[in-house]
């Protein structure tokens, strides 16, 4: 009896933690929208701050909770910015979360490497979406997206290292 209660408490805690992290990801992507556009990069290029959250959840809670957050983010984009934004967000979010999870599993990559791979997967998925939705010429952006992923992914990795103690505390409580 005692054991079962403990199990229930633990799973309730887990669900609550995932909810908090999902909210955090939404707030970060909203705040990011308020920043000025990145110089030298194609319009629409973003830092991907909310990737910090999916990255952390992928490493600490596992694949499914992280995917759940990516899907929630996509649905939120659908509600606030329309169908195209939702399709792009889902494609990028789901692929990058899966890539980050599997790279964490290999244990060969550091936070920066995982961040860069996640950013690259996110960009590549969105570029392919744009390719199929509009024009083959979208592939002209591919080299710039490589550069962009290296820069923003490194930033994501560094920021995650900086806020890691806070996120771990949030997870425990």
């Amino acid at each position: 009896m005692r054991l079962r209660d403990e199990k229930k408490v633990r799973s309730a805690r887990r669900i609550a933690a995932i909810g908090i992290f999902a909210a955090l990801a939404l707030v970060l992507s909203f705040l990011e929208g308020l920043l000025p556009p990145l110089p030298m990069m194609p319009p629409g290029a973003k830092l991907g701050l909310s990737n910090i959250v999916t990255m952390f959840v992928a490493s600490s809670q596992g694949l499914l909770p992280a995917l759940l957050i990516a899907v929630l983010k996509g649905l939120f984009a659908g509600v606030t910015r329309g169908f195209t934004a939702m399709a792009l967000s889902l494609a990028g979010g789901v692929l990058s979360t899966a890539v980050m999870y599997f790279l964490f599993k290999t244990k060969k990559f550091g936070l920066i490497g995982v961040g860069v791979s996640g950013a690259f997967a996110h960009n590549a998925a969105q570029l392919l979406c744009a390719y199929f939705l509009t024009s083959k010429t979208m592939l002209w952006y591919a080299p710039w997206l490589c550069v962009l992923s290296a820069a923003t992914g490194t930033l994501t990795g560094l920021l995650l290292r900086a806020v890691l103690p806070l996120l771990e505390k949030l997870e425990r409580e």
Partner: peptide
Amino acid sequence: MKKLFSKADAVLIAVLLLIAAAALFFRM
């Protein structure tokens, strides 16, 4: 605590930047 940067990370970033530089060079 997770490590921040590894050898694999360095290789990954170098490959990405090389591909981009090569593509841009040939395009120009």
